Every structure is written in structure tokens, then in C-alpha cells.
Simulated assay, not measured.
Amino acid sequence: MSAESSGQDEKIANLRRSIDEIDDTILDLLNRRVSLAEAIGTLKTQTGNRVMDKAREESILQRLAGLNPGPLSSEMLRRIFVDIIAASRQAQEPKRISFLGPEATFTHVAALAFFNELDTFVPHPSIRDVFDDVEKGTSRYGVVPVENSIEGAVNHTLDLFLESELHICAESYLAISHDLLSKSGDLEKIHTIYSHPQPFAQCRTWLKTHLPHAELVECGSTSQAAQKALLADDAAAIAGSAAARLYDLKVAAPAIQDAVRNTTRFLVIGRDAPRPTGNDKTSILFVTAHIPGALFKALEPIAASGLNMLKLESRPARHKNWSYVFFVDLEGHVENEKVKQCLAKMEAFCQFIKILGAYPVALSDA
């Protein structure tokens, strides 16, 4: 071995020793951080505070991004600290999250993105089952779809808020991309396509153009469709990329949805009451008297207060024919004085009004 080669080896060994020393320090600091998180978790338990503070977590990530001098990229920094924060949350209180399943559905993907893979995720066959699981305390949170930018509201979710005492703790948006999956990945072999009714509706034009003679068979979920596609060489499923990975299917055609910007909004339901962040929305439902101008009078305080109404949806009331329940999202937190006064004025024109939750506004991909 030459003297030059020996010198290079010694430099590498010194650098590796320095890395080992840094790793030892990182390990010590990580354990100290988790210990502090455990202490916070104990205090939360003592005070009955169960708030999932996503705003606090985001502020941590933004602060660190502002301090980062490099060469670590902002994206890599975020990925590292998302996992560190998740481990700290897990130390505070391991969480069980129910979601509209089965696995690899878009709701499952949304739940994983909002929480973390360190938590326990439990699939349920219906939205009602998710609500029931959280109400019983078996799961701390539930994740359910509430509206799609193409197909509109998920009515079953809205209806369940009429009878449930759970709160909306957070919202999340997920860009929806539908792939055509099959065992072979060969488009010409496909004669039968399985999927949920919504993906069929969202891919209608593509299917008529590329596979006009294929038989379309509806399933309860995109995951169930993927399972059926595994059973025959001439079958395919419309599902997401998560289903392709889980069931080892090939992509016969990617992103076949007709609308490019197809986004679904999901709600995190639980018993928490998130604190104001300065960028919040308040969701309410109300029932008006069945008289002319009742809805106008109920909504007039919103306009008069200068609050932005972000959403208005109606559903038939179950207790009386031709009576309706209205769902409204308002800009601002319910603890804000302007929002409080507005809701108080609305009560005079409503037979019933209920605050569903006040929570941070999520970024939408729409």
C-alpha cells in the first residue's frame, strides 16, 4: 500500500469517527426530545387536554426551514423532522385512528399523510362504523371523506353529524389520481373493469374513448376492485397507486381521471377542540323554520359581519318532510368575537344550530 493511499484511508477513518461522535450526540438529543414530549403528554393527560396541535408542528417545521443553512435541502430537512415529531407524538400517547377502509383506499392514504405510519390505523367498512368507533373511545380519531371537487358532497358524512357529538378536529385535502391496474399491465387484454362508482364517474370519458366495450363492474371500494383484478388475466381495476403497491398490480394506464385537478376533502373527527391559529374555519349546521325568507334571514348575519362563507350545503331533514338542514363553513375560529356574535344573531332565525368544530384551514391542491 502506497503512502498516499494509506494517508487517504486515515482521513476517511477520521471522518467516520467524527460522524460516529455526531451520531452519538444526535441519539442523545433525540432521546432528550422524546423525554420532553412524554412530560408534555403527562401534563396534557392531567389537564384533560387532548388537542392534536398540527399548527404547532407546522410552525416547528417552518422555523427550522428558516434556520437551515444547508447543505441539507429543505425537503430532506422536513422529511427528517416530520418523523422526529411523529416519534415524539407517539411517546406522548400512541394513537389509534379509524378510517373508511379497506387499506390502500384514498381515505387510508389521507389518514397516513395527516398522521404518521407509527400510529395504529384501523379500517372500517362504512362511515358510520368510523363514527361509532371514535364515539365509543376505541379510536381517538377517525378520518372520513366529506366532499370531492368533481362529485360534490359525501352526504352520508354530513348526515351523521346530525346525530353525533363528535367534533371536526382538522381537515385534509388529497389530490386524487386514478390508475388502471391489472396483472399484466397490457391494455389490450382488459375486458372487465372493477371499481367504486365514484372512480367510474370520474373516468367516464377516458373509458369510453379507450375501452368502450369493457364491462364495468361496481365494487364497494377501490381496494376490493384491486383484489378482484388479481383473479383474472382479462380484468383490471381503477384504483390509486397505493393499491398497485399493496396488491402487486401493474399500471396499464396512469392518471385516467377526466378532470386534471380532482381533489377530495377529508375530515378528522374526534373530541378535541383545536386552539385558534389565526387561519381557521368554523363548521356549523342549522335548521330554519319552514317559512318564506327563513334561509335568507339566517344567513344575513354572516354577510353583515363581514365573514367569508366558505361553503353552503343542504340536506333533507329526517324528522320532517320538505325541511332541510344546512351546513356552513365560516372563515374564522368560533372563539373569535366576530364569529361568536354572528352565530348568536343567527340563532334568532334558526330552530336549531350546532357547532361542528373550529379547526385550522388546510392547504388545498384544488
Rank of each mutant, 00 (worst) to 15 (best):
N308S: 06
H290I: 11
V334S: 00
G240M: 08
W322Q: 04
G306L: 10
Y324V: 04
L330C: 10
K311C: 08
A259M: 10
F327V: 01
G278N: 11
R245A: 15
N321T: 05
N262F: 08
W322D: 02
F296N: 10
H290E: 14
I269F: 07
V251K: 09
L310W: 10
D248W: 03
R315S: 05
L299W: 07
I302S: 09
S283A: 14
I238G: 02
L267Q: 04
A242Q: 14
N321V: 07
A317F: 07
A235M: 02
E335R: 15
G240Y: 00
K250G: 08
D258M: 00
D272W: 03
A317C: 01
D258H: 00
P292F: 13
L330F: 13
V287T: 06
V268C: 04
G270Q: 13
S241Q: 09
N336A: 06
P254N: 01
T263V: 14
M309S: 11
R271N: 12
H290Q: 10
V260E: 13
V334N: 00
L267E: 15
L295P: 02
S323W: 02
T263G: 07
D329G: 07
E313L: 13
I302L: 05
R275L: 12
W322M: 06
S314W: 11
G270R: 01
F266W: 05
R318Y: 14
N336R: 04
V328D: 10
A237W: 00
G240D: 09
L307D: 02
K320W: 08
I291N: 08
